[in-house]
């Protein structure tokens, strides 16, 4: 399988990056800090050493912010960088299809992001044992797996972007534009739309379309998927927007569907685009 050979080579190459080391250290710092905050929260809620809540405080916040950044930093230059430098001609001079290269890159870079996540979460785990004292390992594992999936989604987005341009600068701008879009612009736009439709920002009950739109960003979907795995509704749209009958897209398990779409669409666009261009 040619994509595997590309992935292995790519992993070996990218995992030696210094930027990755710095980002992983930062991530570990945040998860340990999160574990500390979790122990503080446990005291506040008095004996409420509710394991999933600890995990959420310790891990979801740092992962929700840092995994997209790490994944995009690791992947934005995956193809554009090789096109820019010319090493892509070495890679494609060997018998790999362009699709194998895109898929290999995604696998390789996901491996790299995976190492970073596992290292960060290992520190978080140590922190939780040290500060809180007890952790549900099953929940922890579920948390890690969903986060790896979340990393994969952002790697697909990053590699997809990377396959569309020859310029790493453009790929970087695209990647970070996307982060800004998902973190800020998305919800602001949805708010504005709400205002346009309802004439005000505060409504008694949020309309279904509003909750649906907010649920469709990869970050919201990560929350939903975590909620589904941990059986904890506080993370999901259903938890936040209360209503008894929620639109399909806001349901916890639907988070996986949304994540899947965010992985596959950029992947498909990337493959199609990369297949047709001149190197």
């Amino acid at each position: 399988m040619s994509a595997i050979a590309v992935a292995k080579k790519d992993f070996r190459d990218a995992v030696r990056s210094r930027t990755l080391l710095v980002l992983t250290a930062l991530f570990a710092l945040f998860t340990v800090g999160g574990a500390y905050l979790a122990s503080w929260a446990a005291e506040v809620f008095e004996g409420g050493a509710e394991t999933t809540l600890d995990l959420i405080i310790a891990l979801q916040t740092p992962a929700g912010y840092l995994v997209p950044i790490i994944a995009l930093v690791v992947s934005y230059a995956a193809i554009a960088g090789e096109r820019e430098s010319g090493s892509l001609k070495f890679l494609l001079g060997l018998p790999h299809t362009r699709r194998d290269v895109v898929i290999g890159k995604i696998l390789g870079r996901t491996g790299v992001v995976g190492v970073s996540i596992v290292v960060g979460f290992a520190f978080g785990l140590i922190g939780l044992f040290a500060f809180v004292g007890s952790v549900s390992l099953v929940d922890y594992l579920g948390f890690t797996l969903v986060t790896l999936l979340f990393g994969l989604v952002y790697v697909c987005i990053g590699v997809g972007l990377s396959s569309m341009t020859r310029s790493t600068t453009k790929a970087a701008i695209g990647a970070f534009g996307l982060i800004v879009f998902f973190w800020f612009a998305w919800s602001i736009l949805v708010q504005l739309l709400l205002y346009a439709v309802e004439g005000q920002f505060f409504v008694e009950e949020f309309p279904d379309w509003y909750v649906t739109l907010l649920s469709l960003s990869p970050d919201a979907a990560y929350g939903s998927a975590l909620g589904a795995v941990l059986g904890e509704s506080g993370l999901t749209m259903s938890g936040m927007y209360g209503g008894d009958e929620l639109p399909l897209a806001a349901g916890p398990w639907f988070g996986f569907v949304v994540l899947g779409v965010w992985a596959l669409v950029p992947l498909a666009i990337g493959i199609l685009r990369f297949d047709s261009i001149d190197l």
Partner: peptide, 26 residues
């Protein structure tokens, strides 16, 4: 077998790793 113009290789991989990658790829 191809030797493209203006060779760029993978800076972080060794010479042997490059050749091994070509052997595996082919």
């Amino acid at each position: 077998g191809i030797l493209p113009e203006g060779i760029e290789l993978y800076d972080r991989l060794t010479g042997r790793q490059h050749v091994e990658f070509a052997i595996e790829s082919k």
